[in-house]
Design a protein around this nucleic acid. Structure first.
Length: 212
DNA sequence: TCCCAGGGGCCGA
DNA sequence: TCGGCCCATGGG
């Protein structure tokens, strides 16, 4: 019987530690939150460029972010795509962070409050909780669904929360495990379990129901 | 040239 | 509730 932990171990053996977003300061925490918004349906490479620009402009602070004009911000973040939407979202999130002390909240309440923010959906909320606040909330994305439905562990048409529950009930609630697992899922989806999968070279092929 | 990337809001059925 | 559409740049 294939379990999520078994898959995790195989991924970790093959890809090793992914070193995603180690948080050591409040400044980096805000950077992660910004990154989570900017990377919505966008490759991380484009986001990295924009984060560099925002650093140079001294904008990695919520107080600065709400001061800058939305139009100017949109121009600065242009390479990340959807720049008009995302400029608005960055300002809304910044305003929210100045008015709410997320760090003082429990995971469930934090998630509920984050989901009330326009521009923050389930994946972005869980990414912020897991990587910016180091609290265990499993992140589900298109890759997670793709890989685990091909492996036959979940249904392809499962909802976000169903998939999230599947992982949270079948894994130890461990922050570092959740962080590393999501990063490994992204890596595996990029390397092998692509939209057009490279099953021939995939190290999970023996366990996979969906050999193509 | 086409496809896709670490989604989410909105709207109509 | 759910499918379809829109947002948009950059790299392979």
């Amino acid at each position: 019987m294939l379990t999520p932990k078994h898959v995790f171990d195989r991924l970790f053996e093959n890809f090793g530690n992914q070193h995603w977003w180690p948080v050591s300061s409040e400044n980096e925490q805000f950077e992660i939150i910004i990154g989570a918004i900017l990377t919505q349906n966008t490759s991380w490479k484009n986001v990295e460029k924009v984060l560099e620009t925002l650093k140079k402009e001294g904008l990695i602070h919520p107080e600065k972010m709400i001061e800058i004009q939305t139009k100017k911000l949109a121009e600065l973040i242009r390479p990340s795509g959807y720049y008009n939407q995302k400029a608005e979202r960055l300002k809304i999130v910044s305003q929210f962070l100045l008015e709410n002390d997320l760090a003082a909240m429990g995971v469930e309440w934090m998630r509920k409050k984050l989901l009330e923010i326009k521009g923050v959906g389930p994946e972005t909320a869980d990414s912020i909780i897991l990587y910016a606040f180091n609290k265990p909330s499993f992140v589900v994305d298109l890759y997670t669904k793709r890989i685990f439905s091909r492996l036959g562990l979940i249904n392809n048409n499962s909802s976000y929360n169903e998939v999230k529950q599947f992982f949270e009930t079948n894994l130890e609630k461990d922050v570092e495990l959740f962080q590393e697992f999501h990063a490994l899922i992204v890596e595996h989806a990029k390397s092998f379990c692509k939209k057009k999968p490279d099953c021939e070279n995939c190290f999970l092929r023996k366990n996979c129901k969906k050999l193509i």
